[in-house]
Design a protein around this nucleic acid. Structure first.
Lengths: 136, 136
DNA sequence: CAGCATCCCGAGGGATACTG
DNA sequence: CAGTATCCCTCGGGATGCTG
């Protein structure tokens, strides 16, 4: 577990080395940056529960604009996390559901989200402490 | 685990409801947004291994500017994930090390990073497939 | 209903130069 | 060595209006 070999840079511009240990060089950020968007985890979390239609997602996440809802859903779909199914009714309805890839991502991701919620008080406390010590 | 009660909005502006299930309303994003920065996970990953000095971190992450290195380290310190120790030598040296809180965060976080690296090919493939289907 | 198009703004972050 | 200080610019994302 503590393999200290190969002291090469962790990332070097375009190229990436996966030598020794892995963490986040280019490929990792290529994935992480997407789910780091402002609304990605929200929507992944919602769709992890069950499929939803566009309007339902709007209601679930009231603060999102339809522009960002559309865009984020497209990004998540493009990366293979969710599927989009159009029902040719009139007016049309569209359902979004999570894929297996999305579910496999959300498994570890949900652990981080749970950590964040559980440890939010500790983080806030740390900030207060830091800010006070900065008032020197 | 699948508690479907309380169909209230997941977040509502400034206020948050943690009703029914949790995912990421305000408190979660308050934590996530920080570690979602471009360099946060890089530095957390490095310092999860061992303490490093400023210059060492620069060498480990060649693409980062000293401005962002300083700023990201400060943010991580403020949120309680890392500690900063100054050795009054001349010239001065500063060591950064992970805290217990940081380690407890990195545990689930590293799982996501590992997922990202392992599934990067799947994501890239999904993108190609999506982009091809968009050439309609 | 489920979008797309357009305009616009602020924050995140890069480059460079200077300092205790 | 380990920063701080400026300048600058991209781009994520909000607001608004229109459509099949």
């Amino acid at each position: 577990m503590a393999l200290n070999a190969s002291r090469k840079p962790m990332l070097d511009g375009k190229e990436c080395d996966t030598s020794g240990w892995n963490m986040d060089n280019c490929p990792v950020r290529d994935v992480i940056d997407r789910i780091a968007g402002k609304w990605s985890t929200l929507l992944l979390g919602a769709l992890a529960r069950q499929p939803y239609r566009f309007g339902e997602l709007r209601r679930l996440v009231p603060d999102i604009s339809q522009r960002m809802l559309t865009q984020t859903l497209r990004d998540l779909q493009r990366d293979g996390y969710i599927e989009r199914e159009v029902f040719p009714t009139k007016p049309p309805s569209v359902e979004y559901r999570m894929t297996d890839l999305g579910r496999s991502l959300f498994e570890p991701l949900s652990k981080v989200l749970q950590w964040a919620e559980a440890n939010h008080p500790s983080v806030k406390a740390a900030r207060v402490k830091y800010d006070e010590s900065e008032l020197a």
